[in-house]
Design a protein around this nucleic acid. Structure first.
Ligand code: FES
Ligand code: FES
Lengths: 133, 133
DNA sequence: ATATATAGGACTATCTTAGTCCAAATTCAA
DNA sequence: TTGAATTTGGACTAAGATAGTCCTATATAT
């Protein structure tokens, strides 16, 4: 069945943690330790959030992460795409023309599935991190 | 990102096909041929739909499948659970107590994720097969 | 009897997700 | 200038889920 990836779960936990440590810089190590999240994996996730401008990072000693936006300005949807990339709910929805699904002609459900995709997206866009902290 | 399984896609195509062949019995072979769906896989799917009383089947020669309900009486949700089983959107939501997630104590996002799960379920319950035919 | 169906167990192959390992690059401070 | 703490990021591996195959049994109309 349809699932939110573990990585997004971790991201939510991390963002909650960062949000709770108001404005102090927080290190990946801290979040990993307190939250029981594999360090290396978490690091990657935080980096991606940084690349999406959800977090700001400071390298080096006494470095760490902090929020770049208010939690209610971060849609769950952008978290999901930042972390898991791509966004198609079904193979029907070939976004780019290079790797077409072989059923492009015969497929009978493309349109309604597209509609469903849209509705799900809207749901995930309407949720923000503030709903999770 | 979040996805509907290929099997559910096939199920939707099959149900559309059956619904279009009003009341005639339709064989798995027909659906497979016309829809370019792997026969063996499709068979399993149709069997599951039969076990959920979405379809009725007739074995033997001249056998086949037909709908057991109006398409607007079949929620997408029941299709999804019939085919992919289980229903948890995230590991947070350990439904049964035997295989608890190891983070049960430390997990900070259980509640909001449960809420999200509920909303998604409601969305999938509100959609019926009639939206896809 | 036999051809045409569904029924269903057991297996394999393929893809995705989760997690690990390692080697930079940055920054602070002694 | 050295060293510890930190982010950055590529490459790899392990584990799990999904998709697909194969084979045999059972039912039924003719
Ligand atoms: S399954 Fe590929 S176009 Fe619908
Ligand atoms: S991740 Fe297991 S309880 Fe939340």
């Amino acid at each position: 069945m349809i699932r939110i990836s573990k990585k997004v779960e971790y991201a939510l936990m991390a963002l909650k943690f960062i949000s709770d440590s108001d404005h102090k810089l927080v290190t990946a190590r801290e979040i990993s330790d307190k939250g029981n999240i594999p360090y290396d994996l978490l690091s990657k996730i935080l980096q991606k959030l940084k690349n999406e401008n959800i977090l700001v990072s400071n390298q080096g000693m006494n470095g760490g992460y902090s929020l770049n936006k208010r939690t209610d300005e971060i849609p769950l949807f952008s978290l999901m795409t930042a972390i898991d990339g791509d966004t198609a709910i079904a193979e029907c929805l070939h976004d780019n023309n290079d790797k077409d699904c072989c059923m492009t002609d015969t497929c009978t459900i493309k349109l309604p599935v597209t509609r469903l995709q849209k509705e799900l997206e809207d749901l995930f866009k309407s949720k923000t991190i503030s709903d999770f902290v």
